[in-house]
Simulated scan of single mutants.
Amino acid sequence: MKKLVLPLLLAAPLAAQSFELGLNVSRQSYTSRDTLSKVEAEDKTVVAARLGYALVDFGPALFQVTAAYQPKVETDLKPNGFLVPTKLGNEYWAVGAMFNFKALIAVGAGVDYRFEKRTITNVYSSSETYSRPWARVNAGYAFPTPIVKPFIGLEVAVPLTDEDLGPKLQVGIYGGIRF
């Protein structure tokens, strides 16, 4: 029996960890490309899913690792302000870490490492995959329910490096459940 107690005591904190499943609906804006002409992409509303696992959930502190995915969305490209039949597509998957301070209004900060895929489609289609770090901050409210904790909040994310015609800012609403 004593041989069983130690493994159970070591495994108990793992069982008490919490998962998070959420959706982020945000407005994404893009950098422009300045070559012979200025090429801009129109802002676009995007939806991304995120899964989080809390490594530390003690008192007001929550530290979690995350994984996210945004399916491909397309927006129009405008060289020198003119709309042309060319589309810019963007999608990503990411891994990251997030720290939240839980109070009446929870606030948090984190980093993601996003693996982004950019597609330009006109008569022909070309794509490019690149990766870069992003920083994100949020503020929100978790509803105090007994088992599943729904939450909602505002989130802002910015890349830490620039990329031509890549997303440069994401502002949106993030909501989901923790269980």
Rank of each mutant, 00 (worst) to 15 (best):
A54K: 14
A54T: 06
L55M: 15
L55E: 15
V56T: 00
V56Q: 01
V56D: 01
F58I: 13
G59V: 05
P60H: 01
P60D: 01
A61V: 13
L62D: 10
F63I: 14
Q64L: 13
Q64A: 14
V65I: 15
V65F: 15
T66P: 07
A67I: 14
A68N: 00
A68W: 03
A68E: 06
A68R: 05
A68T: 02
Y69G: 02
Q70C: 03
Q70S: 06
P71C: 10
P71I: 15
K72A: 01
V73C: 06
V73E: 10
V73P: 00
E74G: 03
E74N: 10
T75S: 02
T75K: 00
D76V: 06
D76R: 05
D76S: 06
D76N: 07
D76L: 07
P79R: 04
P79D: 05
N80V: 14
G81F: 05
G81P: 11
G81C: 11
L83M: 14
V84L: 12
V84I: 15
P85C: 13
T86S: 10
T86G: 13
K87T: 11
K87D: 12
L88M: 02
L88S: 06
L88W: 00
G89D: 00
G89R: 01
Y92F: 13
Y92A: 01
Y92N: 01
W93Q: 11
A94D: 00
A94G: 04
V95R: 10
G96Y: 01
G96I: 06
G96W: 03
A97T: 05
A97R: 08
A97D: 09
M98F: 15
M98D: 09
F99N: 11
F99D: 11
F101L: 14
A103R: 05
L104K: 06
I105N: 02
I105C: 07
I105K: 05
I105P: 02
V107A: 04
V107W: 00
G108P: 07
G108C: 12
G108E: 12
A109K: 12
A109V: 15
G110T: 03
D112P: 10
D112F: 09
D112L: 12
Y113I: 08
Y113E: 04
Y113R: 10
R114M: 09
R114T: 02
R114N: 02
R114H: 06
F115G: 00
F115W: 08
F115D: 04
F115S: 03
E116S: 04
E116F: 02
K117R: 14
K117V: 08
